[in-house]
Design a protein around this nucleic acid. Sequence first.
DNA 1: CTGTTAGCGCGTTCAA
DNA 2: TTGAACGCGCTAACAG
Lengths: 349, 349
Amino acid sequence: MGCAVLPLTLSFVTMDQVNLKRLAKELGLAISTVSRALRDSHEISQETKDRVQALADKLGFQPNPHASSLRKNKSKTIAVIVPEIENNFFSGAINGIELIAKQKGYHVLIYLTHEDFQLEKGILQLLQNGRVDGLMISVSNTTTTADHLIASSQAGLPIVFFDRVFEDLDVPMITTDDIEVSFKATEYLIKKGCKKIAFLSMAENLSISKRRHSGYQKAIEKYLPGGWHKTVPCTPNDEQNRQVINNLMEEPDAPDGIFAAVEKFAINTYQVCNERKICIPQQLKVISFSNYSATALFNPPLSSIIQPAYEIGREAAAILFKIIENKKLLTSENKVILPSQIIYRGSTN
Amino acid sequence: MGCAVLPLTLSFVTMDQVNLKRLAKELGLAISTVSRALRDSHEISQETKDRVQALADKLGFQPNPHASSLRKNKSKTIAVIVPEIENNFFSGAINGIELIAKQKGYHVLIYLTHEDFQLEKGILQLLQNGRVDGLMISVSNTTTTADHLIASSQAGLPIVFFDRVFEDLDVPMITTDDIEVSFKATEYLIKKGCKKIAFLSMAENLSISKRRHSGYQKAIEKYLPGGWHKTVPCTPNDEQNRQVINNLMEEPDAPDGIFAAVEKFAINTYQVCNERKICIPQQLKVISFSNYSATALFNPPLSSIIQPAYEIGREAAAILFKIIENKKLLTSENKVILPSQIIYRGSTN
DNA sequence: CTGTTAGCGCGTTCAA
DNA sequence: TTGAACGCGCTAACAG
């Protein structure tokens, strides 16, 4: 027993492709007339339009997108390039992007870099020749140069950055108030009594790493000038991170506060604390960037910095479409900064 | 200050499009020769191939995908249709799909139905005319008929279902051992002493709802024949669910065990229990489908049924490509059932 | 081994 | 108001 449906239909399709030619023949019209009728051209009589539309509906005509794209030099497609997708921030952004794309009648291609610069370069190469009308990217954490992005941009491909950006490029970008919110989060830990706050950091070359670190540093300098501070580089690897955090907590002057640059590191911290029987928040207070709302159910509930992922996606897509449609961007749209939200919970009490 | 890069380059592109014609002219060759050289045809001399390749590399030539697709009637693109993306199960599946697609040199279009049947129908309509070479879908929970899918399939579009399927269709599908694993989960609750286990259910028309319910029911019938059981319909709306669960827990014979068909409902249960000071697992044991690993950090840690999302995605994509490539499917590939994994944690102690 | 030609399906010019 | 013809960029059949 196989798939009865498919073999049956292959021949069907080959013979009965529904395209302009077919419609034209069945209606006794020229192809161009049918084409114009369907595009509601003013130079076609209403009667003809109706006849054409009726048959098109009946046969479920859909114009061949490749022919159309080739002719119009427009793909009606945008690309989203993200490091990973099993991450509520990126999937939230994609959700927002998809909303706008759908409204515009656009299709959305997804590419994952898995934090690999070479992959990212390859993807940009692939998108070079008209496959998409524009792209949005959050760069991988191994990306240290923007040459591939500049090249694409110079080849005429509209690009919008979001979250993980290259700040010195003259390309529209949507970010969040990382510096301010990181300052606030660190400040909060300090006000709650932390004297030794460690910053769990992602790859240092990343724009968001720098900004989050900068907010942390500013708070330390303001409230604990010359005091204890430590930046702990973490990785995408859980086991490795747990090892690093374990070592950190073993030291004589272990931290009494953790500011995690991404949710993963907070989770690794919780895991280590569970193992070592370190009490959060009594012995160690923890606050972290996170876009998973159920961190409220953690033990203890995790104080979280929530980025407006959905809005970032919507905003980035909206700006990309303005570029695609050759609309002029407002000055403010070149660098959009959206506010994150901090929810203080049990992990910082 | 605007985007200096873009305006500059638009004219560049328009004048200097790099295509076969351009390469041919610069090399003094025929277009077809260049085409064949680049496709490494055996009927082209090595010397010519080298010359062509060199110039192509120098100019960063990428064949126009629309022209290519139009000519070959192949889009090198597949579509993934899922209800939502901010959900670790679906994002995990997409991750697996993307892996295989990348290996095959394919592109991946994402469509979200937001659990809306009309949207789902519209998307299938869009994919009708060659935009993709095949699609994979997990149907929305408001989808009660497969007509739109059958129509596409009959129009020659390869389709593979995953997770949320239509079981009576003759189309390949990848699912998990929902019945067995639901039986086991319920059985476990019973062995842990639960006498009154409620099943928090999704839309009843969904294949996975039925299967998960069936496993639950079998366990009840086997171990508590004629005993207390209750199926509680939940929705995508958190507030509504909390209300429903609240009412449930208020009743004189409230349940002492919850089996949640999706993670969201377990979270809603935890929220209600927090409010009502109901102790998990002493007063109420909870087990749930979930693909978020950090449920281990919940208070108490949530016993979870983890579906192999990534493998489902990989397997579904692999089978879709077999169909696209006209390879014969093994009988076993028409209905693939992958095992889920249960991790028992504090919520069922 | 290379060139010429035709045509994928559509949209647009030019004619009528 | 409609039709005929061309070309988007590429691939494949046919010639030489």
